[in-house]
Nucleic acid binder design. Structure first.
Lengths: 192, 192
DNA sequence: GTCTATACACTGATAGAC
DNA sequence: GTCTATCAGTGTATAGAC
């Protein structure tokens, strides 16, 4: 019944998204998702480690795109400039995914269990970016600080942009970076 | 058998921490925790919404302490100065909790499911702080950006300090704030 | 590699203990 | 009257049989 293994993940993902939208995440069972995709519950868990994971498959693509952008950034750029340039570079990737990302984010926003997973994914992604930044010569502290801070900003920009497409993601990122720069410039030099 | 209701939460918490240390989080069942505390599994779930939550009871104390510090901060301080002063003000609170926090953090670091919960708690705490910052006159964007960024820095400082008590938490926070200020000052003014 | 059995997390209801 | 035990059940996730 299955066409090929590569497709099954997508089929399950689509079935899950549909069911979550129809009846909510909690009222949807893993067996129900599997049934809609024409397979058994056991097969579902062969493709996804747990029920939440079915909505977080695309993360790997985003991560590798960001890592590549960081590696290819001009040598002389600082960690934060490198990072925000990388965020800008994946804009079109995110725009192409918008039809899937919008309903997905609605479901996540309505489901605490999925918000937890999302936060964990963002933290893991930030750690991966920190490694890439460190490889460019930044210190450990700089890398982790920039990655965590930048990832928080990136997530804020993305979520807001999914809710309201205007202004665009690039403008939102610029605005956020400028706001952060301004706020940190206002910090008292010697804190106490 | 139960002394009083107020104590039961702490008893279960201690029993859980002990068992997690002895056999790990995954190999410990909710029924096992309850049994060590002298009650049934059903009682465990009356005190904690789920198994993970048993390690995150103290969050409310930290939150209210931070919110109070923000509300009492001098009017003229900017969001980030307000925030980091508040972090500094809860230092002694965290030091008193160190005997509990150190083993707790070890267990969390070894358990992905608990790391997820921790990230979620940090995000929720950041949102609460953002509301408090906004009440002091900051814009929505400033409040959320400062809170998310500051919370990431606070968490980094705390985790590192739990692993190695020296340097102290206050010094770590100062160092991080300075590093952030320096990095953002180096950001190119007009980002492309 | 699929299927069956099972452990464990969690929920509701009801009745009983203090 | 609040807190707890007991019971019965659903759903997630794993593992061993074959």
């Amino acid at each position: 019944m299955a066409k090929n293994a590569d497709d099954m993940g997508s089929r399950l993902q689509r079935a899950a998204l549909d069911l979550f939208r129809e009846q909510g995440y909690d009222r949807t069972t893993a067996a129900g998702i599997a049934a809609r995709a024409g397979v058994t519950e056991r097969t579902f868990f062969r493709y996804f480690a747990d029920k939440r994971e079915v909505l977080f498959g695309g993360e790997a693509v985003l991560r590798s795109a960001l890592l590549r952008a960081i590696a290819e950034a001009p040598e002389q750029l600082g960690p934060l400039d490198t990072l925000f340039r990388s965020f800008q570079s994946v804009g079109s990737l995110l725009e192409n995914n918008r039809p899937f990302s919008v309903p997905r984010q609605e479901i996540i926003s309505a489901t605490p269990a999925l918000q937890e997973r999302e936060q964990a994914k963002l933290a893991a992604l930030a750690d991966a970016l920190a490694v890439a930044l460190k490889a460019r010569g930044a210190t450990e502290l700089q890398s982790v600080l920039a990655a965590r801070t930048g990832m928080a900003a990136f997530a804020m920009a993305t979520v807001a942009w999914l809710e309201h497409p205007q202004p665009g993601l690039a403008d939102r990122l610029d605005l956020i970076l400028l706001e952060l720069k301004t706020m940190f410039a206002a910090v008292s030099p010697a804190d106490e």
